[in-house]
Amino acid sequence: QRITLKDYAMRFGQTKTAKDLGVYQSAINKAIHAGRKIFLTINADGSVYAEEVKDGEVKPFPS
């Protein structure tokens, strides 16, 4: 399943989102408010992988 960072954070909370991605909650808040195009893939085992689309390139998040 693929979902935006904002939607994932709204569904699970910023604290869990940060923990799942290995970053601080403040980084999640800042990324959402900056309007960054970050998409999360939720794997069947429950693990989460995030990618950011920037300038036409897709890069892992966090980099």
Rank of each mutant, 00 (worst) to 15 (best):
Q1P: 10
Q1Y: 13
Q1I: 14
Q1E: 15
Q1W: 07
Q1G: 11
R2T: 10
R2S: 08
R2D: 03
R2V: 11
R2A: 08
I3C: 09
I3E: 06
I3S: 05
I3A: 05
T4C: 07
T4V: 04
T4M: 06
L5G: 00
K6P: 05
D7S: 07
D7P: 00
D7Q: 09
D7F: 04
D7L: 07
Y8I: 01
Y8K: 00
Y8S: 00
A9T: 11
A9S: 08
M10K: 13
M10H: 12
M10E: 13
M10P: 00
M10G: 10
R11L: 14
F12D: 01
F12Q: 03
G13K: 01
G13T: 03
Q14M: 15
Q14F: 15
T15Y: 15
T15K: 13
T15P: 11
T15W: 14
K16G: 03
K16F: 02
A18I: 02
A18C: 04
A18N: 01
A18K: 02
A18E: 03
A18M: 04
K19A: 13
K19S: 11
D20A: 10
D20M: 11
L21I: 08
L21S: 02
L21F: 02
L21T: 03
L21H: 01
G22S: 06
G22R: 07
V23L: 09
V23T: 13
Q25K: 14
Q25W: 13
Q25V: 15
Q25D: 08
Q25F: 09
Q25I: 15
S26C: 15
S26Y: 11
S26A: 11
A27C: 15
A27Q: 14
A27K: 08
N29Q: 14
N29I: 14
N29G: 12
N29M: 13
K30T: 13
K30L: 12
K30Q: 15
K30W: 09
A31H: 03
A31K: 01
A31S: 05
A31M: 12
A31C: 05
A31I: 07
A31D: 02
I32R: 01
I32N: 02
I32W: 02
I32Q: 02
H33A: 14
A34F: 09
A34G: 09
G35A: 09
G35Q: 11
G35M: 10
G35W: 04
R36Y: 06
R36D: 05
R36H: 06
R36W: 08
R36T: 05
R36M: 08
R36V: 05
K37T: 12
K37I: 12
K37C: 11
I38S: 00
I38T: 00
I38V: 08
I38K: 00
I38D: 00
L40S: 00
L40H: 00
L40I: 15
L40A: 03
L40P: 00
T41R: 07
T41F: 13
I42E: 04
I42C: 06
I42T: 06
I42V: 11
I42N: 03
I42F: 08
N43I: 07
N43Y: 10
N43V: 08
N43F: 11
N43G: 10
N43W: 10
A44W: 09
A44P: 14
A44R: 04
A44M: 10
A44Q: 11
A44F: 09
D45E: 05
D45T: 05
D45M: 05
G46Q: 06
G46C: 06
G46I: 02
G46N: 06
G46A: 05
G46W: 05
G46E: 05
S47A: 08
S47G: 08
V48I: 13
V48C: 06
Y49D: 07
Y49S: 12
Y49Q: 09
A50G: 12
E51D: 07
E52Y: 04
E52F: 03
V53C: 11
V53Q: 09
V53W: 14
K54R: 13
K54Y: 12
K54V: 15
K54C: 14
D55L: 08
D55K: 08
D55R: 08
G56D: 09
G56N: 10
G56W: 05
G56V: 04
E57L: 13
E57C: 12
V58R: 08
V58M: 09
V58F: 10
K59D: 04
K59F: 14
K59T: 13
K59A: 10
K59W: 14
P60M: 07
F61A: 02
F61S: 02
P62N: 05
S63G: 12
S63F: 09
S63W: 08
S63D: 14
S63I: 09
